[in-house]
Design a protein around this nucleic acid. Structure first.
Lengths: 208, 208
DNA sequence: CCATGCAGTTAACAACTGTTCTCCAGAATT
DNA sequence: AATTCTGGAGAACAGTTGTTAACTGCATGG
């Protein structure tokens, strides 16, 4: 259904993406609240004023980056949580999946971890919203599991958000270990796996 | 053993503290990587050059803030974890303690949450170091508990760090709810309590 | 084919930044 | 009482920032 956009809009989206990419790279070594608009345009090679054709401000660009980083992650989350197999296998697959995602998109992960509690309110809000959506989706998947029979809605949401937070912390650990040795990364796998396992155990005995 | 410092050093520490206080206030609405040295001195009412008498840079000031925010917290952590009473009572007391601390020092908590993954490497490192110390201390207290018999050192540390991370996330939740209604804060208490309880359950069945 | 729209440019603005150097008042030391 | 030390002030620097205005070239729709 995508009739090819004119050569005009195509160019616009191209520079827009260039701005996003340049910003993401610059944000590896600083926070969004110190990212200058001129800094971004200089990195791309366009005039400072061109920035305004795409974003109102760097905060606005930040919100767009949140969408780029988390927007496409929802299907992945769903299938991961609802995967079948015995608990330990599911945990191993989830950890592996996080590890791979961090290795493939380190800058995105760093951006989210950094700006989740960062100094720019609209961006914080956008991240919170996306994470809340993740929470709801995970809860919806957990509800299907027979283990969840007898659970209250509040308890299910609590567990779902615990999982979401755990994913983020794990991602952050993998990020720190990215430039380290293979041993370090393996250690992160061990830690993350055991944390998930402990939570899983708590889940199975919740109603005792 | 504290022979009163001369009127000279006293004044110095006074302005130093004023700089730290002003910075902490400014950091409620931005990240450290965008905090300007002139901005801080202006807020205090001293010349920009006076800043250099106390800190090499704003990053240096940030490291000092980490010490101020977390340095005095170690005894509190220890006594909290090693408290006696039945599990649910201990959890309730811990949550209450976190809630009180956040209400008393919101700016400090915000600073730590923000800069833990922030854009200033030395500050990130300082926070990581302090949190690692917390982890070791919590582990040491957990080891005393009869529930921990049979646990490997690695597993104990894993659980300890899980608790530390949980404390931080809870603190962050309380922070968000600070300016909200009493109901919101009560809701955070519920969520945090149930998370801790689930972890506690997982802990008790770890060796099954 | 011509007129409109619009992504990107150029130039200029006032305001701000970190840092250096020189200086001073007054506490500390002798 | 004389000297040294030092926390802070003052002025100046080159460089940066966000934002405005008027422009140009070119794809687009009539």
């Amino acid at each position: 259904m995508s009739h090819t956009l004119g050569i005009r809009q195509a160019q616009k989206q191209k520079t827009r993406q260039a701005l996003l990419d340049a910003a993401l790279r610059l944000l590896e070594e600083q926070s969004l609240s110190s990212l200058g608009l001129r800094e971004v345009t200089r990195a791309v090679g366009v005039a400072p004023t061109a920035f305004y054709r795409h974003f109102r401000s760097t905060a606005d660009l930040g919100v767009a980056l949140v969408e780029e980083a988390l927007g496409s992650l929802h299907p992945m989350i769903r299938t991961t949580v609802s995967a079948n197999g015995d608990p330990d296998e599911r945990i191993a697959r989830a950890v592996e999946l996080i590890s791979g995602h961090v290795a493939r998109h380190p800058a995105h992960v760093r951006f989210i971890a950094r700006e989740r509690h960062g100094g720019v309110q609209p961006v914080r809000q956008a991240i919170q919203d996306q994470l809340a959506r993740f929470g709801e989706e995970v809860k919806h998947e957990l509800a299907k599991d027979p283990v969840s029979t007898g659970w209250s809605d509040d308890d299910l949401l609590m567990l779902a958000n615990l999982y979401v937070d755990q994913m983020l912390m794990t991602a952050s650990l993998f990020l720190d270990a990215l430039e380290g040795t293979e041993e370090e990364r393996e250690r992160v796998v061990q830690i993350a796996t055991r944390r998930m396992r402990l939570i899983s155990i708590g889940r199975h005995h919740w109603l005792d």
